[in-house]
């Protein structure tokens, strides 16, 4: 669809009414070709969409560059080895983010320790052991669809009531991690399921014809072959969990001391940014530094996921 066609445009257009039955017509039955004026359109008008589309692409790119550039520009000066390894002082205006990084890591650890077995188990169930039309499979799938859309603040409410109060875990890293585990499940399950479905059916048939049990087939063949899908799910899950703020405010809390155990409250990196910028006047410098750390970590994580997904798609 390059410039060449422009030359023949008017000529072909005059025949348009006769050739309307060609394959493209069923695609647009509702709109009786409003895009085809009888008179040939003047060139400036046909340039307009092109200019608009390029301008929008440029606008989006510029916005992205503005946001990331601003954070790098202001944040880069703050980041040093000392910033990463010392505790915050003066409610975060000075000092570093060491306890916050540790708390973030612990929350992530709890989240993954719970969500990985649960998510991969469910994915195996949905992909390998449940016919697509069974009521149980459909029910689980539907409920995961809803779960994927639940606003993070509602997860926060639920985590506060269930983990912090009903189970008596209080404001702790454990409550926060468990809440995040519920939140990342849909992503994890979807990627793991896709990974399992991408394993060629020959594997299963060959294993069955050798008389292997389904358990052996799963452990020895299917899971190793589905590792890329599981990894993508894992990495995307980490990304989602690290970016989360709202679900953690009422579950893991605000305390910025170095956590001593999983029952201590711990402040995640995203909450640190929120607190510094909203509640601490003069906290912007360190907020920029923390934001840069978070953005770099997330860009790395999401980049890894994209890389794995790309390579894995080429393989099959």
């Amino acid at each position: 669809m390059a410039k060449k066609k422009g030359v023949q445009k008017s000529e072909v257009r005059s025949q348009k009414s006769e050739v309307n039955f060609l394959p493209c017509s069923p695609a647009s039955p509702a709109s009786p070709s409003p895009h085809l004026p009888i008179s040939p359109s003047p060139p400036p008008l046909s340039l307009l969409p092109t200019i608009t589309v390029w301008a929008i692409a440029l606008l989006v790119t510029a916005t992205f560059a503005w946001i990331v550039g601003d954070i790098i520009w202001h944040g880069a000066g703050t980041i040093s080895w000392e910033f990463l390894t010392t505790a915050p002082k003066n409610s975060g205006r000075e000092g570093g983010i060491a306890p916050i990084l540790v708390a973030t890591g612990l929350i992530l650890g709890v989240c993954l320790a719970v969500s990985l077995p649960l998510g991969i188990g469910t994915a195996i169930l949905l992909a390998e052991f449940t016919p697509t039309d069974s009521w149980f499979g459909r029910l689980v799938r539907r409920s995961l669809d809803v779960l994927a859309g639940v606003p993070s603040i509602v997860f926060g409410l639920f985590g506060n009531v269930f983990f912090a109060r009903t189970l008596g875990l209080g404001f702790s890293i454990l409550s926060g991690g468990l809440t995040l585990a519920c939140m990342v499940l849909p992503i994890l399950i979807r990627s793991a399921e896709e990974g399992l479905r991408a394993v060629p059916n020959d594997y299963r048939l060959a294993a069955a014809s050798l008389g292997l049990s389904r358990t052996t087939t799963l452990w020895q063949l299917l899971l190793p072959a589905a590792v890329p899908g599981l990894l993508v799910g894992l990495v995307l899950g980490i990304g989602r969990a690290m970016a989360e703020t709202a679900a953690l405010i009422f579950t893991s809390g605000y305390v910025d001391r170095m956590p001593q155990s999983l029952f201590d409250s711990g402040r995640a990196l995203s909450i640190h940014i929120f607190d510094l910028s909203m509640n601490v006047s003069g906290g912007d410098t360190n907020a920029y530094g923390s934001a840069l750390v978070l953005v770099v970590l997330l860009l790395l994580i999401n980049g890894t996921a994209a890389q794995i997904a790309d390579r894995w798609l080429h393989k099959f």
């Binding site: 188990g121 029910l139 689980v140 409410l157 639920f158 269930f162 519920c182 358990t215 799963l218």
Partner: peptide, 26 residues
């Protein structure tokens, strides 16, 4: 395989029940 199957079913049921738990607690 029954052990595996029922383990998986339990995990799936837990995953599916989270939404219901959220609504109930709300």
């Amino acid at each position: 395989d029954w052990l595996l199957l029922w383990t998986l079913r339990c995990l799936g049921a837990i995953a599916g029940a989270i939404v219901i738990a959220i609504v109930i607690f709300l």
